[in-house]
C-alpha cells in the first residue's frame, strides 16, 4: 500500500470533534475523514471570517518526507521546490509544499482535498529518503482574516505582521508556549491566512488559546465551506 495514501475508513476524526459537536457543527467527510463544513449559515460565517475566522483542518491529508540532500528526490519527481528552508511553494495540483529544513518537506492538501498527497510514484523511495507520516502527529488549524496577524501578535514573539512575514514564509516557533509551524498562505481574495501545525496532543489547548485571543476582535469559528469562499 502506498504509505502516503490516506486510508482508514470513515473513522478519522479531529481531537476537537466533541467541541465541534457541542457547537452544533455540521460535518462532511472525504478521504475517510470527517471535517466541519459549517457551524451556522455559510454566508454569515464567510462574512465574519473576512475579519477573523478559525477553522480546524486537522483531518485533511498531509504527509512529510526526508528527501535527501537539497530535496533532490522531490525535484526529480517534478515538484516545485521552495527556494530554501522555511519557505513554501504552491504545486500545480493545488497542494502546498513546505520546506522545513534543507532535507525535510511536508505536503499539505488543497482545501478541496483533490490533490493527491504524494503520488504513487513516490513509494519506492531511495535509501537516502524516508516518509514522515504527519496526519496523526500534528493538528492543522487555519486562522484567516484581516485581524489574524493581530491575534498571533498576542501569542507569539515572532513578527508575523503582513509587512514583515511574507506569503509562503514559514516560522517554526512557539505559539502560546507550544511548538508550532506557522505558514502564511493568503486566501484567493488576498486576505491573510495562516496555517498552524502543532503537536496533536496540544490541539485542544491551542484551539482554546486562539479562541480566547480572538474574542476582542470578534472572531468566529468557521467550517470548510466558509474557508473556501474567502
Amino acid at each position: 500500500m502506498n504509505p502516503f495514501t490516506i486510508t482508514g475508513g470513515a473513522g478519522i476524526r479531529s481531537p476537537l470533534q466533541r467541541w465541534h459537536k457541542s457547537q452544533n457543527a455540521v460535518f462532511d467527510s472525504a478521504n475517510g475523514a470527517q471535517f466541519v463544513s459549517r457551524y451556522q449559515a455559510v454566508e454569515l460565517e464567510a462574512n465574519r471570517a473576512k475579519n477573523l475566522g478559525l477553522a480546524d483542518l486537522t483531518t485533511f491529508p498531509r504527509c512529510g518526507i526526508k528527501a535527501g540532500h537539497d530535496g533532490q528526490y522531490l525535484r526529480t519527481q517534478g515538484y516545485n521546490l521552495p527556494g530554501g528552508a522555511n519557505l513554501a511553494a504552491l504545486q500545480s495540483s493545488g497542494s502546498l509544499l513546505l520546506r522545513l529544513s534543507d532535507t525535510e518537506f511536508w505536503l499539505l492538501s488543497d482545501l478541496q482535498q483533490q490533490a493527491k498527497v504524494f503520488a504513487a510514484d513516490l513509494v519506492d523511495l531511495p535509501a537516502t529518503c524516508y516518509d514522515l507520516p504527519r496526519l496523526h502527529s500534528h493538528c492543522w488549524l487555519a486562522l484567516s482574516g484581516d485581524m489574524a496577524p493581530d491575534v498571533l501578535a498576542k501569542l507569539c514573539a515572532v513578527d508575523l505582521r503582513c509587512s514583515a512575514f511574507a506569503v509562503n514564509h514559514i516560522a517554526q516557533t512557539s505559539l502560546a508556549r507550544v511548538n508550532v509551524i506557522i505558514v502564511r498562505t493568503d486566501t484567493a481574495s488576498g486576505a491573510p491566512r495562516f496555517y498552524l501545525l502543532s503537536d496533536i496532543s496540544s490541539c485542544e489547548y491551542l484551539w482554546h488559546c486562539l479562541l480566547d485571543a480572538m474574542q476582542e476582535f470578534s472572531g468566529t469559528t468557521i467550517g470548510l465551506n466558509a474557508l473556501q469562499q474567502l
Binding site: A85, N86, S101, A157, V158, A171, T173, S174, R177, N179
Partner: peptide, 17 residues
Amino acid sequence: MKILNCPLNGPRNISEF
C-alpha cells in the same frame, strides 16, 4: 528576554532552545 539567533530560523526567544 534573551534572544538566541538560530542559524535555520533566525532570532528566537531563549525559551525555544
